Simulated scan of single mutants.
Amino acid sequence: MKKRQLNIFTVVFIAIIAYFSYIAINQQMYISNVSSEYQIAQQKYDKVMQENQKLKAEKDALQNPKYIEKIARDELGMTKKGEIPYVASDK
């Protein structure tokens, strides 16, 4: 009778240990997944913040008339009144 109680106690104890081990492993996997998702989100956030800084700098530059003139001349090929545009021919 004593040996049977010992076996039941051992089986119950092993079952409890197995259950808590299963819970701990699942929690660790969940924490690992959340951590990797957090890192991905943090990288996206950093990238967006860098883009935001570039856009703010460009916005500030667009307030400067000399920058606007440079853009108009370089990208749009505009000239001031009385200037003759020079167009290079690449042969």
Rank of each mutant, 00 (worst) to 15 (best):
I8C: 14
A72F: 07
S36N: 09
L76S: 06
G77K: 06
D46V: 02
I71G: 00
F20Q: 13
S21F: 04
N52F: 12
S32I: 00
I14L: 14
Q5C: 11
K81A: 13
Q27C: 05
E37W: 04
V34K: 13
I8V: 13
F20D: 07
A15E: 11
N52M: 07
Q27T: 02
K80S: 09
L55G: 02
D46R: 00
A15M: 11
E69N: 14
F9N: 11
F9G: 09
Y19Q: 08
M49Q: 10
A24W: 09
S36M: 15
I17Q: 02
E83K: 05
Y86N: 06
E37R: 12
Q28L: 07
N64D: 06
K47P: 00
A15T: 10
P65H: 02
Y67L: 07
K59G: 04
Q63C: 09
K56Y: 07
I8L: 15
G82K: 03
I8P: 02
T79I: 15
N7A: 11
N52C: 12
D60G: 02
I84L: 13
K70N: 13
Y22T: 12
I25F: 14
I68C: 04
V34F: 08
P65T: 01
I84N: 14
K2L: 04
P65D: 00
K81V: 10
S32G: 06
Q42L: 06
T10M: 07
R73N: 13
D46Y: 05
E51L: 15
F13D: 07
Q5W: 03
F13T: 07
A15D: 09
K54V: 11
Q63N: 12
K2P: 01
Q53H: 10
Y19G: 09
V11H: 05
